[in-house]
């Protein structure tokens, strides 16, 4: 039934709607007064609703940061939980304004789906989790294993690549929803559970005995996760892209949600340009000059949202690694505001 609805929606939207994205998304968003943001239905650290319906996570914070830039109000965002399968269609048909759902930036998604990735929120890679009792210490010992994973993900394809290139037979069991992947793995249907390493840390927490499972050291792919918008809407693309850049630049300049008001008085020209006390950079993206100030003040800089959601002091306990600033040996690097 759901499938039928999706197909009808796709068909009707593409067949009847003369212009899906006519006026720019930014104007549409301003007119309706909120941003509709597609997120993961439940991945601790990235996007997770609590029992009161409050969403938390690094992907969710990116949506809020865009709302802060556009409206100066982080509550002006509505979340649409989407499965791996539904996410891109929801964006194509205009059901959501942006997607921030641990989605890997790949060439085909970027070029043939009519979508654009705006940046990289989190540098990830695919990993494997197995039961400790199997005594496996390396992914190269997994010949002949059954692997549980979710359909509609890059994970499915990477597994095939990895096992084939290492000449190991394997079996893949692909479920539509992540909950069933975890349950089936827990019930012993598979020897291995595979997904983005960040996801493995989050999902291990959902198992009956998290301590009985280990995440193997190998990372078998590049999974740059980032926000996505529709192609051909450069105004909106710029807003989402620069929201993330502003957060990274703020961290680099030492501007945090706590000190941003004092920083407004800073003599550093880079900080002045970022916080809008010098120049008129907001104009270029059709926003107020305090766009970046609002982002940092209301949501935080990149390091802050990383630490709050997935960092060492959270249940996920992930260290910065590749996601450290370039100055600290990581890959997070943003073009300057100038």
């Amino acid at each position: 039934m759901k499938k039928a609805i999706v197909s009808v929606v796709v068909g009707v939207t593409l067949g009847v709607a003369a212009t899906a994205a006519s006026a720019g998304t930014l104007d549409d968003v301003k007119a309706k007064g909120f941003i509709q943001c597609g997120v993961n239905p439940g991945l601790p650290g990235f996007s997770n609703p609590d029992d009161k319906g409050n969403w938390t996570g690094i992907d969710v914070d990116v949506c809020r940061a865009v709302a802060a830039a556009v409206f100066g109000d982080t509550t002006k965002v509505k979340f649409t939980p989407l499965s791996a399968k539904e996410r891109f269609t929801a964006l194509q048909t205009g059901e959501i304004d942006m997607l921030s759902r641990n989605s890997t930036w790949t060439m085909s998604r970027d070029t043939s789906l009519g979508l654009n990735f705006t940046g990289i929120t989190y540098y990830d890679g695919q990993g494997f989790m197995v039961r400790k009792s199997l005594g496996v210490t390396s992914a190269l010992e997994l010949s002949g294993a059954s692997v549980c994973t979710q359909t509609g993900t890059t994970t499915e394809l990477n597994i095939a690549d990895f096992f084939r290139s290492n000449n190991m037979p394997y079996e893949i069991v692909a479920f539509e929803k992540n909950d069933e992947v975890v349950q089936a793995y827990d019930a012993g249907r598979c020897d291995v559970h595979s997904t983005d390493a960040s996801g493995l840390h989050a999902e291990r927490l959902k198992l009956t005995n998290p301590g009985d499972h280990v995440i193997l050291p190998e990372i078998i792919s590049k999974e740059p996760l980032g926000p996505v918008v529709r192609q051909g809407d450069d105004g909106w693309f710029n807003v989402v892209k620069w929201t993330l850049f502003a957060m990274v630049n703020a961290e680099e300049l030492g501007v945090t949600s706590k000190n941003v008001d004092e920083m407004k008085a800073s003599e550093n020209p880079e900080i002045k340009r970022l916080l809008g006390t010098e120049g008129a950079f907001g104009e270029g993206i059709a926003l107020g000059n305090d766009w970046a100030y609002n982002i940092v003040k209301m949501v935080g800089n990149y390091g802050e949202i990383f630490d709050a959601n997935v960092g060492p002091d959270t249940p996920l306990g992930i260290s910065r690694g590749l996601n450290a600033l370039w100055k600290n040996g990581g890959l997070q690097y943003a073009p300057p505001v100038r």
């Binding site: 197909s7 194509q92 085909s108």
Partner: peptide, 11 residues
């Protein structure tokens, strides 16, 4: 499911 997602050719 999978083919649709790999190719994106929903229609």
């Amino acid at each position: 499911g999978t083919v649709l997602n790999q190719t994106g050719q929903a229609v």
